[in-house]
Amino acid sequence: MDTPSGAGRPAAGPTARRGRPGLHPAVRYLGGRVLTAVVSLLAVMVTSFFLFRVLPGDPVAALTQGRSVSVDQLEAMRRDFGLDQPLPQQFVDYCLGMMTLDFGMSYQYRVPVSELIAERLGPTLLLAGTGTVIAAVLGLVLGTRSGWRRGSLMDRVDTGIALTLWSVPSFWLGLLLIVLLASGAGLFPTSGMSSPGVEGTFAVALDVAHHMVLPVATMVAVVYAQYMMIMRSSVLDEMGADYLTTARAKGLRDAVVLRRHAVPNALLPTVTLIFLNLGRVVSGVILIETVFAWPGLGSLFYSGLRVPDLPIVQALFVVFAGSVIIMNLLADLVYPLLDPRVRT
């Protein structure tokens, strides 16, 4: 451990730290994390370019399928898309575009990709954000309960349900809900985000909420298990900790020991997971958006992938990966605020 000078003086203060002189430890920590994130982002950019060119399928052929087009017209389209250039030249253009956030024109929609993304980002954030918040809260509450009463009937039932739902494919569950509750019972709309002809702020909000119920329910059902299992195992880890015994021996009631000592410490690993998932909020709902025809980034990606509409899929790939990287970075930055042991 530290100095064995047990007596009444505190150990050497924060001044006696190793490292480059003149650079505050916090700045070094921050700088290191940001640098890592930037390098990851560059790697993602490069991967994105090549990944989708390796995919089979010719965009020009796909877009002109079933129509009689001349060779000249095909050539013109190729030139238009920049696909006539040699690969290295395409790569340079791609990189320069990325640097200026110019993702190019969509092949199929003929509008700038950045416009498409801006338009679709809101619905995705709404759907996935709501789903993630509900799943996280549900998972944390159930996981805490299960961990604290491990082996009880409640623990076994809750864990069993969560793991069953976790192993269900989200598109299947989504289709099932549509068949049962939307087209079957007629309780909810089958697809989309809004009904035509609805006006007024409140009515529109209510209408969107109504459309959200099934996709959000599908998403929550499938993902809450991971929050629950992480929280459960973190609580279990803390359960054996001596400081809980100390707190009990001081006269604290069990419920308060859980609330004041076990849960805050068990939350630490869970917070990291939540941040990683916030990054996946943008990308994680591709299947659900497709099944429910939700006008978000996920269904945009899906429609881009079918062509392949290279500018769209490239840009979205970078956006998806970038949001994971940025949230990861945020988790690294938030963690020291929560855990004094990581503070340097």
């Binding site: 400081y243 707190a247 001081k250 410490n265």
Partner: peptide, 30 residues
């Protein structure tokens, strides 16, 4: 609770016996 005010416990490993996220003041005042 009344009993535990008058009989107190000190554990073997102080690293584990203190909540790592509580300051010395909080740990003692608890």
């Amino acid at each position: 609770k009344a009993f535990r005010r008058r009989v107190q416990l000190v554990l073997q490993d102080p690293t584990g016996a203190l909540n790592p996220r509580h300051t010395v003041y909080d740990a003692v005042a608890e």
